[in-house]
Design a protein around this nucleic acid. Sequence first.
DNA 1: CTATAATTACTGACTGGTCAGTAAGTATAG
DNA 2: CTATACTTACTGACCAGTCAGTAATTATAG
Lengths: 220, 220
Amino acid sequence: MKQRDKPAARPRRRKAARPAELTAAALGLFVEKGYAATRLDEVAARAGVSKGTLYLYFESKEALFKAVIAMGIDPVMARGEALFEELRHDPVALLGALLGGWWEQIGATELAGIPKLMIAEAHNFPDVARFYHEEVISRGRELVAGALELGIERGQIRPVDVASTVQVLMAPLLMLSVWRTSFAVCDVDACRPEKYLPTYFDLFLKGLLVRPGGEMRDEA
Amino acid sequence: MKQRDKPAARPRRRKAARPAELTAAALGLFVEKGYAATRLDEVAARAGVSKGTLYLYFESKEALFKAVIAMGIDPVMARGEALFEELRHDPVALLGALLGGWWEQIGATELAGIPKLMIAEAHNFPDVARFYHEEVISRGRELVAGALELGIERGQIRPVDVASTVQVLMAPLLMLSVWRTSFAVCDVDACRPEKYLPTYFDLFLKGLLVRPGGEMRDEA
DNA sequence: CTATAATTACTGACTGGTCAGTAAGTATAG
DNA sequence: CTATACTTACTGACCAGTCAGTAATTATAG
């Protein structure tokens, strides 16, 4: 990467690609070490530039943080809304596709760090938290809630309290993605999506009890 | 040298109580702002002392962090293990008591911040993360796994993959406690345990589907 | 019951290293 | 030559950790 002495023609100027390279590097470090503990020198080094360059594209560390959060939003929502229209005729499949799609598009990718980062920094960046809540969390919940409501209407899904069910449903997915970016090192077993995800779908669709029907403490 | 029998009338000097006051103050600030962004001056101020005093009780910021994590461990585990023996005759009730008890003893208290803190800092303090994983996470999982296995043996619980089921089961509780310490400000609705918890128990015991039995996509 | 010496609990100004942000300089392209 | 993309070297604020000093309490001697 470093060829300063050689007079070889080398197009090292990448104005168009830099912002994405820098936000990607920053996301990785913010998620690993936290915002405050991340040095801008490190971010720049990981993106293959010097710190000064970073300031050509972002006017402050906080602006970089905001760009990191913003970068993982649009692709996701568009996909979710498309899925909704495509599968509204089959609410249970739609629910599975929304949740499974969330995992494939976010949970399993680099973007999985964004929820953890946002959770950790919500208190330090209340305006970003509000933005993220409105643009991502609320919109995502609406999609899942829509699927549940369709399923209830058609008698395929039990009549549950939709708002709280959406949150309970999303929690295991969020938790898995958060877990993989934190305890992964000392908890390898727990980060096996191929085991966790089938259990997750099976569990919330069919429940734990052999003969459901009564209340929680209805067993002898 | 030591003459402490006489109870001093004026507790302006509080040697015995200081460590707990300091770790409590530190927990609050670490959870709110993150470890790196928390100033020891602030911690001291919140505990009503000066920074110098803090160093009389903890030899470094890192030592304070470790003390904060350690302070929320013992009371919890003892209670869980007692519950296990007390209710092993009724596995479903035991499961509910373990999960509900976790919420009452941790999720609903100040200690709820510890999981968030540990998740955020696991990468910066790998040794603390390993300790926490062994002493808290693994032991907690064993309790819940034990309840599941008892229930399966007695035919009250479907034969599920126990290891991954434990993780899926714990996720919504963990997520709720994490959420309350981060997005609480801009997401008041979501932090209503009195709505969330019944939904949670109902969902995982009985499932979503009206007529469970087939695979996830068995609906028309 | 004093007077005073010794000890304990705590304070806050200070230091040295760290890091966000800046500005002057270099290399390359057209 | 001029503009652009980038680097290097610097600055000043900030903060973990220190330490000389203070105030409150206790011990001891007269």
